[in-house]
Every structure is written in C-alpha cells, then in structure tokens.
Design a binder for these strands. Structure first.
Length: 566
DNA sequence: GCCGTTTTCGGCCCGACTGTTTTCAGTCG
C-alpha cells in the first residue's frame, strides 16, 4: 500500500465519523473520531513521529483510536471504518458531499433505495424525493442543484491536494528532472488529474513509482504512465531530453493554449506533440519550452497566463519575474489563535511566521457574534490586546486585529470605539448566506464602506468544490471597495481561494489586495503559496498587495486609509 | 470514544435558519 499521510489518517477518521452518524450510533462517538481528526490536523509533529510515539500527547486521540491508527499504518485497514463500511453501500458515503444532507436525511434516502449521487439525481427529477416524508418540492430542487455541484466537483481536487501529491511523486522521481505540470502546475485553483513531466523512459518511471502510486499502467498512446495516489488520478509523461520542451508545453496546458500553439506550429510547417517538435517528419531538438517558442518565432506565455481568460491580455501583464512571491509577503494578517477557534497561541503563531521568513503577524480572531467559533466579547478582546502588548514588549512583531462579523444589515459586530482600538480590521460574512441578492449586495457594500474596515474578508464566501459564493452583485461590492479604499482579501486557504483569480484579474489596477491565510494552526501559515498562485494568475505585483509592506509601513497605510475617509 | 476526575461515569457548543410541519427536526457555521 501507499505510505500513510496525515491526510489518509484524518480521512479514515472523518469517514468513520460519517458512517457512525449514518448508522445511528451515539452522536458523541462519531464526534470523537471527528475531534481526533481535527486534532491531528492541528498538531505540528510529522506523521513519522506521531506513529513512533503512538500518538502520545495528541489531544483527543485516546488509547482506542491510537491503537487502531497504528494498525492502519501497518496493514492499511482501519478496523472501526471496516466495521461500519460493511453495513453501508459504497455510494451512500458520496451523499455526504451534498450540501444540505446530513446523516438523518441520508439515512432516509438510503432507506428509500437511493444509494448514490446518480440515483439521487434521478430521484430528485422523477419526484420520488419530494414525496418522501420530511422532504418536499423545495428540498428536492435544492438537493438537485447540490447533487449537480457535487457530481461536477468529484472529478477535481483542491490545489493543495494536487501539489502535495505532485511533490510526493517528484520526490520519487528525483534525478529525472520532474516538473509539476497540468492544472496544478499552472496554479489553477482546482485540478482534475495530477500531471508531471520527466526526462526518461516509461520503464524507469514505473520502477520509481512502485509503492508510491497504485494501479500504474502504461499509456496506450505515447510514453507515459497513469495511476492513482490516495484515489486521485495521476499521470507522468516522459521522453528524451531533446523533446522535453515540447513535452512540457503540451502537458502543461491549458488545452486551449496548447491547441492554439499547435495551430501556430502547423501554420509554420511544424507538428507539435508530446513526442516532440517536427518539421517534415524530422525532429527539431527542443530541450525547453523556450526552444519550442523560438523555433516557431512565438513568444512563450508564462504558465500562469495560459488560461483562455488571458488571451489577448497577457502581453500587457507583468513579466513572471515581476509577480508577487511568498517571500515578498512581510506580514501575515487575518490569523486565528486559541482565543477563538484556532489551535495555537498567538506566540506560537508569531514564532512560526518568523520561521517561515515573514516579518510580522496580525491577529484576527472572531468577534462576539461568532458563538460557534468562540468569538471574543469586548472584554475578552481587550484581554487579548493586553496579552499582545506583553508579547510586543517581549519583542514579538505583532499587529492587532480582528475578523469582525458583518451583521444582518451590514453593520459590524463591534462598536466603532472598539474597532478604533485595533491596528486593522477584517470584516467578513459568516451568516445569512441565502439573503436575496439585492439585500446581500447592500449589506456587503455597507460593510465595505465602513470607515474602520481595512480589509473585506473572503468576499464571496465560496468553498471550492463544495458551495458557490453568496448570490450578490460582486462588481458593485468591489466598486464600493474601490471607492472607499478598502483592501480586498485573497483568502489563501486552499478550500476557499476567495476572491477568485478571474475577478482579481478583472479588477487589478483598481483595487489593493491582501493575501491572507486565515490560518487556524501554525501549519496553515504556509497556505500563502496558494494565495500567491491566485495573485500571480491575476498578474499582481508586490506593490498591489498590502501585506508586502513591512510592519511600520502597514500601520501607516491603515492610518492613511482611515484619515482619507474622515 | 475522549476526558477529567467526586478514580467510574457523566458531559461532550449552540444559536439561527430552512423547509417541513402543525410545533419541530435537521443542518450549518
């Protein structure tokens, strides 16, 4: 079997929890597996250490779960999951990906003979769902929408998943010059297949990947292999050094860009394929993509700019070496701590920020309306400010902030005099996602125009592959940000990536952005790489990203922003 | 199932919203 990862450990725990809920077991038992998964996500220890210490000291992982997880690492079988799964048809588990369906409703559907996303879609259409007890016409319609979303999403992975797998494969292929290709290589927010290119032959790739990928098979057309890692489809394309440039270009994509390049090549009497660049059937050596472009007399687009949205636009965008990088980010803003729903102290988060090479941390815990997230009352916020001042006195570079809930009417969850005590303010929506579009737009415009709001947090509320953003007039909200000088967040959490790069691309030059991790654990502070991928696809330079400023410059920026609104 | 103990078992986050009901169950953040 493939090696256990943090993701495979937390995956079996979460799936077990879902199944126990579905089987009607005591809710707290399922919750225990979920808590254990969350705890494993939050711990900083690597998987090897966790296993060798038998999970000693990991909160929420007791004797039973620790023993079962160790057995899973050895045998690939997690006993509680096997037990539960044997009682449930495999397709039923997929129903947990449908928004609005929980264990009780899924159980009701299963009892009615609906046991997969496909059969659920049919049952929504033919009226069976609407006629079930506890369901109705409105439920059936919203479930159908959610099923279509889930079916479309199931073939794709988050950028973080794709890059994790890509890097694991690259490690196994070291020496063959592995290159992250395909959607993830271009920094796209989601990817269908994880693709790599290497210099070498298929037999060597196959030998290297034994034990890393499963179900490895040679391609039928051309040199390469396909297989799966953690259930995710992977493809490795390979070839000799003299065709590597063509290989990279073709497998990097996008499809429309490659087809355009192939058409340009044909117009010049060449044939461009993954097997190389040929003229009159004779191979033209092209070790790099730049060589291909030079032979064809074309400019080579940076991989970031190869989507259809960049057509006719990319030449006016900054060159790749001018785009913002993770190293350019000085401050990590909008972060959580144990004060609300984070898993680490402010001090631990700040230390990790410095270890990653950034220069300051901005606190950003939840405000009082966020009960579920242990949001801070005004009294607790002031106590937190006192702690921050002590940490600052001890030499930690911090700025104070909060992620303040935008209330029903667009007002904020703390009064102005409290907001004014903070160095910066992120305003975010965490409630009333289904407000009618006109009211939602009005609500967000009001919040974005508030004189003390520094940054509008995760502006659309989307969760990639899970739910679309709230219905509203996004351009009207972004125009309000432009008018009031409010910074727009690029939430770097790989499950959000909100604002979407396509909107950032459209609004670049008119807005200032912040690349924020929204980290709840120290490891989450490294999510900057995903937010930076968004910014690069949108052509952003460091000057357009507010948290490339050093601490004092950032504080001065906020002062100017506030002064301009008086 | 985990935790913290009154060391043997009770408590584990909860308010708001939605669509279904006919007073509330289920889901979400």
């Amino acid at each position: 079997m493939a090696e256990v990862t943090r993701k495979s450990l937390t995956g079996v725990l979460k799936t077990t929890a879902d199944l126990l809920d579905l089987l009607g077991q005591e809710a707290f038992r399922a919750q225990a597996y979920r808590s254990a998964a969350r705890s494993l996500e939050a711990t900083d220890s690597d998987v090897a250490d966790l296993l060798s210490s038998a999970f000693a000291g990991v909160p929420k992982v007791g004797k039973t779960i620790a023993t079962d997880l160790l057995a899973f690492a050895g045998t690939g079988t997690f006993a509680p999951l096997e037990d539960a799964a044997s009682q449930v048809p495999p397709g039923v588990l997929g129903l947990f990906r449908v928004r609005g369906l929980g264990p009780k409703k899924i159980r009701a559907l299963w009892d009615a003979g609906i046991d997969s996303l496909e059969t659920l879609r049919e049952a929504c259409r033919d009226g069976r769902v609407a006629s079930l007890k506890g369901f109705g016409a409105k439920s059936a319609a919203s479930i159908l929408d959610a099923v279509d979303f889930a079916l479309a999403a199931q073939a794709r992975q988050h950028l973080s998943t794709s890059l994790d797998i890509s890097e694991a494969l690259a490690g196994a292929l070291s020496g063959l010059d592995p290159h992250s290709s395909g959607d993830a290589g271009r920094g796209l927010d989601t990817a269908d297949t994880v693709r790599l290119t290497v210099t070498g032959c298929a037999a060597e790739v196959q030998a290297r990947l034994a034990g890393v990928a499963e179900a490895l098979d040679a391609w039928e057309d051309g040199p390469g292999l396909k297989g799966r890692v953690d259930g995710v489809p992977v493809e490795v394309a390979c070839g000799p050094a003299e065709t590597r440039g063509a290989l990279d270009l073709v497998y990097d994509g996008s499809l429309s860009y490659v087809q355009a390049m192939q058409a340009e090549a044909a117009a010049r009497g060449f044939e461009l394929t993954g097997q190389g660049l040929r003229r009159g059937g004779v191979l033209v050596p092209t070790p790099t993509g730049a060589d291909v472009a030079r032979e064809l007399g074309l400019a080579l687009r940076p991989p970031e700019y190869r989507e259809p949205e960049h057509d006719g636009l990319w030449e006016a965008l900054p060159a790749a070496d001018e785009l913002v990088t993770v190293q350019d980010l000085r401050g990590l803003l909008h972060t959580h701590s144990v004060w609300s729903d984070g898993a680490a102290t402010i001090e631990e988060m700040a230390q990790q920020t410095l270890r990653l090479g950034h220069s300051f941390l901005g606190t950003g815990d939840h405000s009082r309306a966020a009960h579920y997230a242990n949001g801070l009352s005004i009294e607790r916020l002031r106590a937190q400010l006192k702690e921050v001042r002590e940490l600052q006195a001890a030499g930690l570079p911090l700025v104070t902030g909060a992620e303040v809930d935008i209330l029903d009417d667009g007002s904020l969850d703390y009064p102005d005099d409290v907001l004014a005590e903070l160095d910066y303010v992120v305003a975010s929506v965490h409630s009333l996602f289904t407000l009618d579009p006109a009211r939602q737009t009005e609500r967000l415009i009001r919040a974005a125009s508030h004189p003390l709001v520094t940054i509008l947090g995760h502006p659309t509320g989307r969760l990639l592959l899970r739910r679309p953003g709230y219905a509203m007039d996004l351009d009207a909200v972004l125009a309000a940000c432009e008018a009031s000088g409010t910074v727009v967040e690029i939430n770097a959490n790989a499950y959000r990536l909100d604002l979407d790069w396509r909107h950032v691309l459209r609004w670049r030059g008119r807005l200032t952005f912040a690349i924020n991790t929204d980290a709840h654990v120290p490891a989450g502070l490294a999510d900057t790489r995903y937010g930076v991928a968004v910014a690069r696809k949108a052509g952003l330079t460091p000057a357009q990203v507010v948290n490339t400023l050093e601490r004092e410059e950032f504080l001065a920026f906020v002062s100017r922003q506030r002064a301009a609104r008086l």
